[in-house]
């Protein structure tokens, strides 16, 4: 079963544990500047919205790469960067409609979410459940359930 990151901005408190976990997993240091997931805050913190790669099935970045440095991990469904192949041409960063693949000056390669090989550390670190890792076919399950309960107009016991 493939799994996807499910993001619920309503729950996010903007603590950045996810950004630290991401950078620790990929860089060995706590360093939000190198995180592949970013939290965006609006209006003095009224809203905090986590955003990262959704691992497109038809991935623009993958198609755009001239050297085939971007490859699909069949087990996790993630598009991963082969660092030894990437030439840092940045064409993928232009192709991605969402901005979730970015150049990393310190390595000269691009970096993106790789779902940590199937154990995403952002989801593990998130204290509020704003990021969870669920069945890709059923990312809408909880939301459906919330609406479903509203259609039940029988008196509650």
């Amino acid at each position: 079963m493939q799994k996807s990151l499910l993001i619920d901005p309503d729950k996010c408190t903007s603590c950045l544990q996810c950004e630290m976990a991401c950078s620790f997993e990929h860089e060995g240091a706590f360093n939000p500047a190198k995180s592949r997931i970013k939290i965006f805050e609006f209006e003095h913190g009224r809203r905090a919205i986590p955003y990262t790669c959704t691992q497109c099935a038809e991935a623009w970045c993958l198609h755009a790469c001239p050297v085939e440095a971007l490859v699909r991990n069949q087990a996790t469904g993630a598009v991963e960067v082969k660092e030894d192949v990437c030439v840092g041409c940045k064409v993928c960063t232009i192709a991605c409609p969402f901005g979730t693949i970015n150049y990393n000056q310190s390595t000269g390669k691009v970096a993106k979410c790789d779902l940590c090989g199937g154990d995403p550390q952002c989801a593990a670190a998130c204290p509020t459940g704003a990021i969870t890792y669920v069945d890709s076919d059923w990312t809408g399950y909880e939301r459906m359930k919330q609406w479903a309960v509203k259609t039940d107009n029988r008196p509650q016991a």
Binding site: T13, S14, C15, L16, Q17, M20, H44, G45, R46, T128
Partner: peptide
């Protein structure tokens, strides 16, 4: 009260956002 908000790294989030 609009929501609660955390400081950096905080898993408590006692901060209040209000209007």
């Amino acid at each position: 009260l609009v929501t609660n908000k955390a400081c950096f790294g905080c898993t408590i989030a006692c901060g209040r956002i209000a209007h």
